[in-house]
């Protein structure tokens, strides 16, 4: 989270203050906006890695900011905070390009965790180096390191790890992996996926990377704290 450029759009003073303190402590550069107009001006003039957006703003709906971002063609991940939690709203927000959604009252830790996960997924998606525990993935160089030591992984293992890192803190099903790594090849068995994952786990767990097997669901690359 170090040096991540974060825009916090929240009009409640206490919450904005508490959140920005916590996020700054995590190493984020936090810019704050209180109104939708202010937020729109900021996203137009500066680049952000992640945006935390409260839906209820004094001069309008946070949705306007989402729409504005889409208009600008920015794919900055947005975490929406809302006191409302109607289903239609949730679906509408995800359609509008929100990445994640937290219903108030939410603990600051929860928001921090979501932001972290969003940043990490974004980095993995955009081919930047990602750090998981003591493991560093460098997708550009197609290499992995534990601390500074190179970790030897097969191309498929590395691809799988990158695939999971781009979906860190999300459930990844065997079908997802089959589709993502083998292009949905029917001949590849689920068994092959299981073996691949268990090989990866054996390699990365000593480096403090939690690759969880959720029985009946799939896999979950847990980033925990970082």
């Amino acid at each position: 989270m170090r040096d991540a450029r974060l825009l916090l759009i929240e009009d409640d003073q206490a919450l904005a203050d508490g959140l920005s303190r916590s996020l700054r402590q995590d190493g984020c550069q936090v810019a704050a906006a209180v109104t939708a107009a202010e937020a729109k001006a900021l996203v137009g003039s500066r680049a952000f890695d992640v945006i935390v957006l409260d839906l209820g703003l004094p001069d309008g709906d946070g949705r306007e900011v989402l729409a504005h971002l889409q208009q600008l063609g920015k794919d900055t991940p947005v975490l929406v905070l809302s006191a409302r939690d109607g289903l239609d709203e949730r679906v509408g927000l995800l359609d509008l390009g929100a990445d994640d959604y937290v219903v108030k009252p939410a603990a600051v830790d929860e928001i921090r965790a979501r932001v972290r996960a969003m940043l990490r997924r974004r980095r993995a998606r955009t081919g930047q180096t990602v750090t998981l525990g003591r493991l560093t993935l460098d997708p550009q160089a197609r290499r992995a390191y534990v601390d500074a030591e190179p970790l030897t992984l097969t191309a498929r293992e590395l691809a799988a790890l990158e695939f999971l890192a781009a979906r860190a803190d999300r459930i990844v099903t065997k079908d997802d992996l089959l589709a993502g790594l083998y292009g949905g090849d029917r001949d590849v068995s689920e068994n092959a996926v299981e073996k691949l994952i268990s090989r990866i786990r054996a390699r990365v767990e000593p480096a403090g990377v939690q690759l969880r097997v959720v029985r009946g669901l799939g896999y979950y690359l847990q980033t925990g704290d970082a």
């Binding site: 965790a113 803190d169 459930i171 939690q210 959720v214 029985r215 009946g216 979950y220 847990q222």
Partner: peptide, 22 residues
């Protein structure tokens, strides 16, 4: 499945073994 993403971290933190049969 959607909900699981929310509570799995807590389950992992408490070392709770969750099995799904969906």
């Amino acid at each position: 499945r959607e909900g699981a993403e929310e509570w799995l971290p807590r389950a992992f933190a408490h070392d709770v073994d969750i099995q799904f049969d969906l």
